[in-house]
Write a protein that binds this DNA or RNA. Structure first.
Lengths: 206, 206
DNA sequence: AAAAATAATGAACAGTGTTAATAAATTGCG
DNA sequence: CGCAATTTATTAACACTGTTCATTATTTTT
């Protein structure tokens, strides 16, 4: 059935077109300015056509979210070269903060917005492949730190949660303009890095 | 000029009416379901009338946000009875988490949404009275801990930032359904409390 | 070639925040 | 008091939003 295959390929190509147009709008005009009609305009289709290829807007946002994770995962490529897991954890944290500050729109979708998670939950088992990969990276590093007795042992998930919470707390408060209420605006980024460094240092000592 | 005074009072009363109707919708139907038209319907005014009393929707959301902070500050009343600043910090953290989990809609407005901060920035000097009070509470406790040599000394703002980041990271990831990707859903709340406890314990030791 | 399936669309629904023009009520003043 | 000025409230409209339905056009299958 070569025809069915080719049809499937065509379908996938249009899906890709839609997602690429969405991403273009997304990075240029920001999350709030992505609308079905604007995407449709960009690829010169009618708005209703998008609903043939995606269930709803949430599903499109979900895929953009996954693309964001791909970028983040790619930015973590340098990690494998670092043998000391604590140093690796430190770089992971730095990367996380930098990614969030440099790609606030992606960060929003990946860690703040509800929309993509709605699609995740709608899928049979909670399909969030790239998101899960990113979390797995963190857990693996924490686990290795424990195995090598570099940090106190405990529940991996809970410690991972604490580390994630610091990093996410910093980034999300920063991109939502809350941190500049605590430190002067031009010192926010510096303080964020100090905080994450402090966090990992205390992990070491503990 | 008693008439002008009374007029001002009337004006203030209608503003209150609008805010109370907004809050009613807000706590019952959630943040996303508060619309100018629904508020207007509830108080039996036309939608455009609201624009006589508030500049825009952001300004209404800003006031709801401030009301959220009032609730949060009220829930911290028990703090003053605790003499040990570390214990006080611990209760502050617990209160913060509980408040966030019990009032996710308020929490959203106070710490996640952009809308209220837009109004804050539009005002002359960045008017965020209740938000600033809440942050001041945290800073004062941290300062007292340092003064009494209960935690290592350093930049108060930066340490406060780290503490806030953990708490906010936990709550915001929780209410945005991200934490259940790391620990089983029924253990999320427990792990959150463990994380904040761990955080303050390591602060103590450091 | 006719029938069935797929793809695409225009029109419409029910909503959103916001503004301009207009009507109604209230207040200030001679 | 009566008239003008101001304040308050409303209706209509603009320019959007996500989404659905009925209809048309295209393609595939029989």
């Amino acid at each position: 059935m070569g025809i069915l295959e080719r049809k499937e390929k065509q379908r996938e190509e249009i899906r890709k077109m839609i997602l690429e147009a969405s991403m273009q709008l997304f990075v240029k005009e920001g999350f709030e300015n992505v609308s079905i009609r604007k995407i449709a305009d960009l690829i010169e289709y009618s708005p209703t056509t998008l609903y043939i290829y995606f269930k709803d807007k949430n599903e499109i946002l979900f895929h953009l979210c996954e693309m964001g994770f791909e970028r983040m995962i790619a930015s973590n490529l340098a990690l494998i070269q670092i043998e000391n897991p604590i140093d690796r954890l430190y770089l992971l944290g730095e990367n996380y903060i930098n990614f969030g500050l440099e790609n606030p729109e992606y960060y929003d979708l990946m860690f703040i917005q509800n929309a993509p998670m709605k699609t995740v939950r709608e899928q049979n088992v909670g399909y969030w492949p790239n998101g899960d990969i990113a979390l797995e990276t963190l857990k693996l590093i924490i686990q290795e730190c424990m195995d090598k007795k570099l940090i106190q042992s405990g529940d991996v998930a809970t410690i991972s949660m604490a580390v994630w919470a610091v990093a996410h707390g910093l980034v999300s408060l920063a991109i939502r303009q809350r941190l500049e209420r605590l430190v002067e605006p031009d010192k926010v980024v510096q303080s964020m890095h100090e905080s994450i460094r402090w966090m990992i240092n205390t992990l070491k000592k503990a």
